[in-house]
Simulated assay, not measured.
Amino acid sequence: MPSLSFVTVDVFTTERFAGNPLAVVNVPKGHVLTTEQMQRMAKEFNLSETVILHEGVTGDDGVPEWSVRIFLTDAEVPFAGHPTIGTACYALGTLAKNAGKGRLLCKAGPIDVDYEDGRAKASIPHNVHLHRDAQFNTAQLYGLQPALGDAGAPKAIDIVSPVNGMSFICAELPSLEALAAIEMSAKPKPQLDEGWDTGFVGSYFYVVLKHESGGMELRTRMIEGSFEDPATGSAACALSAFLAMKQRARTMSFTITQGVEMGRKSDIGVHVTLKESLDAVEKVELIGSAVKVMEGSIEYE
């Protein structure tokens, strides 16, 4: 029976058993897997995401690059944040023996990565969209999160997509006490803008802890029905881009802490550069570390 090697890493942390777990399955050159086989592996790992990592090659510019496919337990996605950072740290740190630069080729597009001292900075594919026609009001939010009625009304509710096919209801809460009151809920079903009403929708709750010129410090939680995510890089990128445009700041850096309430503290960095018009995103960089936890082999048919 054929088998492939794998590792698991905890992402957006330097401590094992914190951050967001990720499985990475290594596929050697010339080895062919069907999409169904990849999906079954992801379902077996039963983590929020599993990456199928094809053996690296050297790009035309001399930079090592790897083809990656990213799977939830029940579907493939074109891009996700913590799989990008976890895979980048493993590929550059372990497979390429601490190479300073690399590239991941995912369905959303190429992702250029800088790597230093165990920390990856990835230039993220983006098509940031603030939903204008769609509305999600306080009454609807209370319907999902009734405990918020006693914890304080949200300061703002916005719907933001980092790419088409992935959207987040971003609700700014007044305090960490309100953030702690968040519970698992029914899945939100907002009517999104025309042409964007597809794919994953999650609820992303945040509290602004500090706001200085050029930067913000945030605490967050991401809920999608009965699932809570310890670290959501795609949501962090979407919210950071939205807040940078709201502040009309050409460059802003964000320090985001997630997963505290789950006992899996995650430290996420995002750097946003806007275009000169200040109403569109030029570049989004996602920053974080990862640590290996397990390794082994997976057999399959």
Rank of each mutant, 00 (worst) to 15 (best):
D10H: 01
F12E: 01
E15P: 04
F17V: 00
V25K: 00
N26K: 04
H31F: 15
R40E: 08
M41W: 05
M41K: 06
I52H: 06
L53K: 06
V57G: 07
P64Q: 09
F79H: 08
G81W: 01
G81V: 04
H82G: 07
I85C: 06
C89G: 02
G109I: 11
G109R: 13
I111N: 06
Y115V: 00
Y115F: 15
E116F: 15
R119Q: 07
A122W: 13
I124F: 13
F136K: 00
N137R: 04
T138V: 12
A139R: 09
Q145A: 11
P146S: 11
A147T: 04
D150T: 08
K155Y: 09
A156Y: 03
I169L: 09
E172F: 08
L173R: 03
P174T: 02
L176K: 13
A180V: 02
E194G: 03
D197K: 05
G199D: 11
G202A: 15
K210Y: 07
E212H: 11
E217G: 05
E228H: 08
T232K: 10
A235K: 05
A238G: 08
S240I: 03
S240Q: 06
V260E: 15
V260Q: 14
E261Q: 10
G263D: 06
L278N: 09
E282C: 12
K283D: 12
V284H: 07
A290E: 02
A290N: 08
V293G: 01
